[in-house]
Design a protein around this nucleic acid. Sequence first.
RNA 1: GCCCGAGUGGCGGAAUUGGUAGACGCACGGGACUUAAAAUCCCGAGUGGGAAACCACGUGCCGGUUCGACCCCGGCCUCGGGCACCA
Length: 870
Amino acid sequence: MDSRDRAGMSDRYEHAEIEARWQSVWDERKAFATNGDKTGEKYYVLEMFPYPSGKIHMGHVRNYSIGDVLSRFFMMRGKNVLHPMGWDSFGLPAENAAIQNGTHPARWTYDNIANMKIQLRRMGLSYDWSREVATCTPEYYRWSQWLFLKLYEKGLAYKKRSSVNWCPGCSTVLANEQVEDGQCWRCSSIVEMKELDQWFFRITAYAEELLSSTYDLPGWPEKVLVMQRNWIGRSTGAEVDFSVEGSDEKISIFTTRPDTLYGVTFLSLAAEHPLLEKITAVEKKVEVEAFVTKLRKEAKDAKAATDDLVKEGVFTGAYCTNPLTLERVPVYVANFVLMGYGTGAVMAVPAHDQRDFEFAKAYALPLRIVINPPGITLDPSQMDCAYLDDGVMTGSGSFDGLTNTEAKEGITDLLEKRGTGKRSINYRLRDWGISRQRYWGCPIPVIYCSGCGTVPVPLDSLPVVLPENVTLTGKGLSPLESAPDFVNTACPVCSGPARRETDTMDTFVDSSWYFLRYLSPASTTEPFDKESASYWMPVDQYIGGVEHAVMHLLYARFFTKALRDLGLHSCDEPFRNLLTQGMVCKEIVKCPEHGFLYPEEAKDGLCVHCSKPVQTGSVEKMSKSKKNVIDPDRIIKEYGADTTRLFSLFAAPPEKDLDWSDDGVEGSYRFIGRVWRLVAENMEMLSGASPYSASTGESLAGVLKDLRYMTHKTIDRVTQDIEKRFHFNTAISAIMQLVNAIYQARPSLTPDQPEAAKVLREAVEAVVLLLAPFAPHLSEELWMRLGSHVPVYETAWPRADLEALIQDSVVIMIQINGKLRSKLTVPADASEDMVRSMVELDEKTLEWTKGKTMKKFVYVPGKIVNMVVA
RNA sequence: GCCCGAGUGGCGGAAUUGGUAGACGCACGGGACUUAAAAUCCCGAGUGGGAAACCACGUGCCGGUUCGACCCCGGCCUCGGGCACCA
C-alpha cells in the first residue's frame, strides 16, 4: 500500500526495518570503537553501568539516551569520544534467583547480560562494545582482589570485630551507607546489630579530602555535594578529659561547644562505653547492668525507632572532676549517647543543649546558665527549652562578659595550656564495611593460618576463583563455608593447612573502579593502564540516578584517591561533571479492595474485579509492585528506538522527573514521520541541489532569507542547548520549530527562484544532522537518501553562519508605564534618537501619551522601549 | 527539627544576562483532502468582558527594590527530596 513518489521514497517511515539495518551497519563497521589514539581533545562519557536484572527498564532508557546524545554530539564535534558499557554483575538477586529456580547464579547472570545486550543494541546506542566488562568474570574480579591487597598493604583494608548492621532478609552485613531509615536499602528488612569480625576499608582516612574536594567540583549538582558533606559530617570542637574521682581513669568527651564547659552539671556515657563497668559504684551495678541489657535488647528489636525516643538513664554512682571548675560532676549512662560517634561520652550542659535539658528535667538535675542572650538574663526556673544561640558569657570565671564565640577559643586555649583538653575534629563518616556473607560476589583474597595468622593471597596467585559447586540456602553463614575444596588450602607462607576467607566483597567495591578498567579492559598484567588513565581520566560526564549520592559516588571518589596514593594513576576525582537524571514516573491506579491495578484492570474509572471506583491522579516512580511500569521493549517494537529516545528526552529536562505519557510518545512518533515526509515529499527538489553556501550564493531576500535565518538560528540554539545546558527538551523543540518553518516556507519555494532549492537543502540537511544525536537511525537513513556516502556519525556537526543571523530590521516592544502597548519595526542598526523619533510618530503610542508629559524614556537596543508618562 | 530543591494554561514544559509570560508538544475545537474513516496538511485557543478593534486580570501568598520582576530582596504557605538524639 506504499504510495511512492518519483524518487522512490515511501511516505511512511518503516522504523523496524530501517533501525535494524543501521544497527547492523554500525556493528559491522565498529562505528563507535575508540581507537588507541591518545591525541586530540578527549571526551569520556559514562552512564552508570546496570545490574543485569534481566530486562532494561525506562530508567535505563532515559539514562542511556542522555549519554548517547552527548556521545554522538561530541563525536560529530570532532572530539575523541570514549563511551563504554558493562555490567555490575555480582549481587544478591542472582543468588535469590538461584535459590528459587535452581539455576546457577552465573548462568542466570550471563543469560540476563545476553538478553539485555540485545535490548541495548535495539536502542541504537553508540557504545564501544570492545571494551565491555562484567564484574563477575575472573578477568575483572582478579583485579578487584589485586586492589584489595594493595589497599591491605597500605593499611587501608583491615579486619576488626565490631558491631555491624545485619540484614536478616539478605542474611548479610551491610555498610552504613546501605542502611536507610534503619532498613536494608535493597529489601527493606529492619536491620539488626551484630557483633562480627569484618573487613573494612579505611575511608575515614580520606574524610578530610573527600569533604574538601566537594568544594572543587563545580560540575556536580549542589544537592549531591550537600548530601556527601552531610554524610561525612565534619564537626570541629574540643576533646576534654574529666578525671574520675577515686581512680586513675579519665573520661574523654568530645564537644563542639567548649564555651559551655562552665555549665556542665553531669556527664553521660553510652551503654557500650569501655569505662562504664569499671567506674560503676558497687551499689549501682545491678541497676546499671539491667539498664544496659534493656537498651541492648531494644536496639536489636527495632533500630528504626529512633524518633522522639524518651531520654532515659541511670546514675552510675561515679563522679568526675570538671577540669576548669574542679567541681564534682555525677556520671550517668544514657540511652541517647552513641558509642559510634566521638568518644561515646558527652558532657551535659542542660541549659544549652536540648537533649541534656530533657534528661535533666526527667531526673531533676540542675541547670546552669553560662550564656545569656544579648541584653537578657535567663532564669533557669522559667526555661522550657535549652538556649542554643550565641550570647554573652556568664558564670564562667574570667570569661564572663566575652561573647561565647570568643570564649570558645579562650576556653580551648586554656584547656590546651593545662593539658586537660585539645582541639579536635570529628567525622560522622565510618569506615566502609565490605564483608558480605554471600556467595555471588568477589572472594576476599585472604587466608587464615593457625601459625602465620592472616595471610594475604600472593598477587601472582590471583584470582581466587569463586567455586561453582556451592549449596545456596539463603540462610546461615557464608555459602562458601559449604565448599571444602575452596575453604581448605595451604598457607602461602608456611605451606601448612589453612582456611580461606569465606566472605565476599560488597558489590560496591566492584563498581568503585570500573571506569578505570574500561581504559584497558583486556590487560592481563594490571588493573588498568596508567598511560591510558592519564589521557582519559577523569570521566568528563557521568550520568546516573541520584540514589547513589552517598553510596557508589562516595566509594568511587574514595577509590580514586586511594589508588592515586598507591601510585596507580594521578587523578584526584573520578567524575568531572555529574548529571543526576530524574525518575521515570507514571500514574498509578488503585482499587480500595484490590490494591494497585494495571491500567487495563480499570474500565470507566471502575475496578473490573469489583466495580468499585478506582483512585487515579497520583504519579509515582515506575515499579512492578505499583503496576505502573512500561516495558521499553514494547514501545521500541511499536514505535521504534528513535521515538522512544526522543520522547524520553523531550518530555522533561534530564534532571527532573519524567511523567510517562502514551499520548506524548505518539507525538514524538508523529514528529519522526513529519521529518521523514519533509524529505520524501521534497526529494525531487532536494536531490538536484547542493546546500546554499553564502560565499558562492547570491544574496537572499524575503522567504529565503527568513528560512536561512531560521536554519542558522536553530543550529546555534541546538548546539548551545546540548553543549552548555543539557536542555535536550528545548533542543528538540527548536528542531521542531525549524521543521515547522520549512513546511511553512515550502509553498513559496518555487523552482523559478534560483536559490530556493539550495536554501531548502541547507535547511533540511540541518534538520537531519541536528537530529542525529536524538534519532540516529532516522538521521542516517535520510542522510543516505539525500545522497551522502559518509555516515552521519562521521559527519561534522553543522556550524551556524553568523552572517545569516544578521537581520535588517528588528521588532521592538513599546511599553508605556511598564505595560505593553505597541510594537514597532525598526532598522537593526537604528540609533536611540532614531528609534525615539519613530516611537513618537507611532499612532498607538500617541493615543496613550496624548496630553501627558514624558518623565523618562528607556531604550534597550533591539528589544524594548519603556516610556514613563504622567 | 535541620539542610537542599520546586511551585507558570486542562497536562508535560518554555522564557539563556531583569526586557513580548505561556515557545515546543499533548489533549481540545474548527477547516481541507476522503464515499467515509484513519493518516496527513492548515487554522484557533491563558482567564474574564466584547461582534470586533481592544480592555482588564494573570507565573503559590503578602510586601519591597526597579522605568520594567516568573527572574532580585524580606516574610509566609504548599509539595518533593535528603539528614535526623552526631554531642
